[in-house]
Design a protein around this nucleic acid. Structure first.
Lengths: 111, 111
DNA sequence: TTCGCCTATCGTCGATTGACGATTTGATAG
DNA sequence: CTATCAAATCGTCAATCGACGATAGGCGAA
């Protein structure tokens, strides 16, 4: 794992690390066509705040914004999350570690 | 999607949203047995900083810490990431949206 | 051109995060 | 009991984040 890919992965994760951004992504996934300012109404935050979240998502490369006349058409770039999925998928290699209490049912840990 | 699960997902993502924590998770995944303070040496941060990252990971439920004599045995809880993987997996539903430039090859977007 | 709508950017604010050294807690060894 | 080592917690600091209102820019309609 190069420091580069580490940074990239953490930036991908950061894009998902906010409820508002999760909602935006879901909204994009659900909406059949293009969507612009309707996002503001659906999310319930100020227009400038939503724009900022969209900027973050775009900077992370997980959405793209196409200018479509007076508005903008946002679309998911689902492939962008592949590295993150892969990373998660490679983690459970160690499910036979010495003292895992119960990986399949970790109800109580010493929080 | 309940507000609850939104929060939970964003917290899972936040656990991954830092290079040091990614490195810790990888280290845990790679290490055959238990591991305690060796993490500090491997990560290259101060002991208190590493301890804080471990606390965050534990709070997110993605690792568990078992007291093992004078040290602590940390172990992954790989299942913890399942909700996040699922969320990502459900996103590409909209790959037929009106104006996706090219979901399979989004080389250039209007960054 | 001028108006109105949609989006982006700017500036500011409080809250949170990340890092560190210093200190405290906990358990084993002597 | 005391020394020692590992880990957690505390206190502090700079940096980043998230939200907002205000403002600026782009485009179509009148």
């Amino acid at each position: 794992m190069t420091p580069d890919s580490e940074t990239h992965l953490s930036e991908l994760a950061k894009a998902l690390a906010h409820p508002a951004r999760l909602r935006i992504l879901q909204l994009l996934a659900r909406t059949p066509g293009c969507i612009g300012g309707d996002i503001v109404g659906a999310i319930g935050l100020a227009q400038s705040t939503v724009s900022e979240h969209l900027r973050i998502l775009k900077a992370a490369g997980v959405i793209s914004g196409e200018i479509d006349g007076p508005r903008i058409c946002y679309a998911l770039a689902p492939q962008a999350f592949a590295p993150l999925s892969q990373f998660i998928a490679t983690l459970p290699l160690a499910d036979d570690t010495c003292c895992t209490p119960s990986p399949t049912m970790p109800e109580k840990d010493l929080t």
